[in-house]
Simulated scan of single mutants.
Amino acid sequence: MTSLRAWMPYALVALILIVIKVDWLPFQDWVARTEVAVSSLFGTDIEISSVILDIPGMTLIAVSIICIWLHQLSFIQYWSAVKTSFKTVSGAIIALLFSVPLVQVFINTDVNLSGLESMPLTMANWLANFTGDLYPLFAPIVGALGAFVAGSNTVSNMMFSLFQFGVADELMMSPLIIVALQAVGGAAGNLICVHNVVAASAAAGISGKEGTFIRRMMIPLAYYLLFAGGLGMIAIHGSGIGTAILGVVALFIIAMIIIGQKKKQELDGLHYNKVNTFHQ
């Protein structure tokens, strides 16, 4: 198989995902007609809807079928690939089946007889009151928390963007910058998002190591959030503590690079000694 043919499925996925979003093409209307909606879920005011053909998984399935012709596969070969893929992700299916509904319950906890706000907004509201003028440093953390719990930067923004805007307005800060920090934090939160970690671990064949993976990703996540928060502090308050935070982050990164190089040299030396011992 040529490299071009091997890369074609990925190119098709990207192309389809873009084409169905372009306004002046007819595909967007076709996709919209596949919407399925349910109102008054379990007797509540919650409404849910899904556009079937707009689900990325449907695009992946469609491209996989195209690959039967593209890669000249027999039905037996295609079915074997389907079984192998299903076996790979089967370990993640159970976790995802339970985590997705729990996320929806978490998001919609504002539907209660006491008139209380939802759990995410209550948590973020406490953080805003606690931090005050330092809030730009914590705004990305709120976004990361939303992505970690909800499993998506998009859902994180849906949960917290309005709240971030309100907090910025209350603290007399630029809503544009605070909401931007929310989006940056949401993107960073994908590093430790349970959905992503479970799915990626299953795809890589390392299921059962999700806890270790999340703990190790906390280090780059901390760098990411501190760096974004430092930039936010500079943008809101000017130089000072924001510059100091960026300096600390830079020192941490330099220290980690030095430690990593030292460890690499130690491993290389150990490997060299083993090779010499083997030859002797």
Score class of each variant (00 low, 15 high):
181 L>E: 04
235 A>E: 06
145 L>Q: 07
87 K>E: 13
266 E>F: 08
60 L>K: 01
94 I>G: 04
38 V>N: 04
241 I>H: 01
217 M>D: 01
109 T>L: 06
279 H>L: 15
175 P>G: 05
127 L>P: 03
42 F>C: 04
3 S>E: 12
106 F>H: 03
256 M>Y: 13
132 G>E: 10
274 K>F: 14
255 A>V: 09
152 S>T: 06
171 L>K: 06
227 F>C: 01
200 A>P: 03
29 D>T: 13
5 R>L: 13
163 F>M: 04
199 A>S: 12
129 N>M: 12
182 Q>L: 05
28 Q>K: 15
237 H>Y: 06
119 M>N: 03
17 L>M: 15
189 G>K: 08
7 W>H: 09
72 Q>A: 12
72 Q>N: 14
184 V>K: 02
38 V>M: 10
81 A>K: 14
175 P>L: 09
203 A>F: 09
31 V>F: 12
242 G>L: 03
69 W>M: 08
175 P>M: 08
115 G>N: 06
202 A>V: 03
190 N>W: 05
36 V>A: 11
217 M>R: 03
23 D>M: 07
278 F>Q: 10
205 G>F: 08
58 M>F: 13
240 G>V: 00
149 V>M: 05
78 Y>H: 13
229 G>P: 04
256 M>S: 15
144 A>Y: 02
93 I>W: 14
38 V>H: 07
55 I>P: 03
94 I>Q: 10
135 Y>E: 04
207 S>K: 12
173 M>V: 00
203 A>R: 05
238 G>F: 00
83 K>C: 10
219 I>Q: 00
199 A>H: 07
56 P>W: 09
39 S>M: 07
197 V>N: 00
258 I>E: 06
5 R>H: 08
230 G>L: 02
101 P>A: 04
195 H>Q: 10
95 A>H: 03
101 P>C: 04
135 Y>Q: 05
254 I>A: 14
97 L>Q: 05
216 R>K: 11
88 T>D: 12
75 F>W: 15
154 T>S: 04
45 D>C: 02
276 N>Q: 15
41 L>Q: 10
113 L>P: 05
104 Q>L: 13
212 T>L: 08
